[in-house]
Amino acid sequence: MSTPATPLSMALSQRQSDERATPISAFRMARRWWLEGRRLNLSLLAEELGIGRATLMRWVGNKDLLMGEILWSLYKGIYDQAIEKARADHPEKGIDFLGQIYTDVNVALINAKPMHDFLAAEPQWGLQLLTSNVSGLQKRLMDEWQALFEEEIQAGRINPEMDAENLAYFIIRIGEGAIYCDLICGRTPVPERAGQAFRLLVNGHSR
């Protein structure tokens, strides 16, 4: 007696050549390679996907932008988890809510093995991607923090001495100093000091 065919069994039995690569499948493969510690090679990625390099470049823009999407997928997951935890721990929000998010994010990034391996293997490129806007990551980080600050300022829970956009910029720069200081100047990362600087900048004239 033959086994009845199901949509899943038919899909799995299709030849690999029948499968069609998409921008999303390209991203997922590139992200999996990165998480495995492999270098991001666009020519090899295109070959593995069964498409031309020109097609891949049209999909992802360039290597920096593709890596920016991969890094943002890591950052966004860390941010979302930190925000969810801080909302549970500090339903009243305010400076303790923001400070917990900041410290939890920095600690998570310091301890993120894929990030550590990437920076160890390609420190110059990695720092360029993480500390400039060539990959689009900086803009996304600033938007994330600016939105948090604007909400807290409008609610009257914090009263910093600078606007939300500039505040976001400076706390991100301080965070970079804490997270990547071992590469930048050979110092051991100390997220607690970054947290203290964060509170000094964000507190302003407390209400």
Rank of each mutant, 00 (worst) to 15 (best):
M1Y: 05
W125L: 12
D96C: 06
I95Q: 01
R31Q: 15
R199D: 02
R39D: 14
P23F: 13
Q124M: 05
S43L: 12
L200S: 00
E144R: 05
L141N: 00
I70K: 07
A26M: 10
G77T: 12
P114T: 08
Q154N: 06
A178Y: 03
I171D: 06
K63I: 00
M162I: 11
S25K: 04
P23Y: 10
V202N: 02
L201P: 04
V105D: 14
F27Y: 13
D143L: 14
L8I: 11
E36W: 00
W72L: 10
H205P: 05
L45Y: 08
I179D: 05
R199K: 09
M67D: 00
F170L: 12
L45A: 10
N133L: 09
R140S: 12
W59T: 00
G136S: 06
R28Q: 13
P191Y: 09
I95D: 02
V190H: 10
E165D: 04
L98M: 09
S9I: 09
S2C: 09
I70Q: 01
L200P: 01
E165T: 03
S73P: 07
N41D: 15
L71H: 02
R187P: 01
A155K: 10
L137H: 09
V134W: 03
Q100Y: 08
L71V: 02
G175T: 03
A30G: 10
E150I: 05
L119P: 01
E192K: 10
R157V: 06
K85V: 03
E84W: 02
A121M: 08
Q138I: 06
L12R: 14
V134A: 01
I70P: 00
P91G: 15
R193H: 06
N111W: 07
L49P: 05
V107A: 03
G175C: 01
N133V: 09
L201D: 11
I51E: 03
E151Q: 11
L35S: 12
W125E: 11
L98D: 05
A155L: 03
Q100G: 11
L183F: 12
I184S: 01
Q81A: 02
A194C: 01
F149S: 00
R193D: 09
F170I: 12
A112I: 04
R187H: 08
F27D: 06
E69W: 01
L66W: 03
R87P: 04
D163Y: 11
D18A: 15
E69V: 00
A11T: 07
L35C: 15
T55W: 12
Q138G: 05
A147W: 14
R39C: 15
E36F: 08
N106K: 08
G50T: 04
F149R: 02
A26V: 06
M142T: 15
K139L: 11
R20F: 03
Y169S: 13
Q16D: 10
Q16R: 08
T55K: 09
S206E: 08
L137C: 07
D64Y: 09
W34M: 08
Y169E: 14
N159C: 05
A46V: 03
L98I: 05
M67F: 01
A120V: 04
S17A: 14
V134G: 00
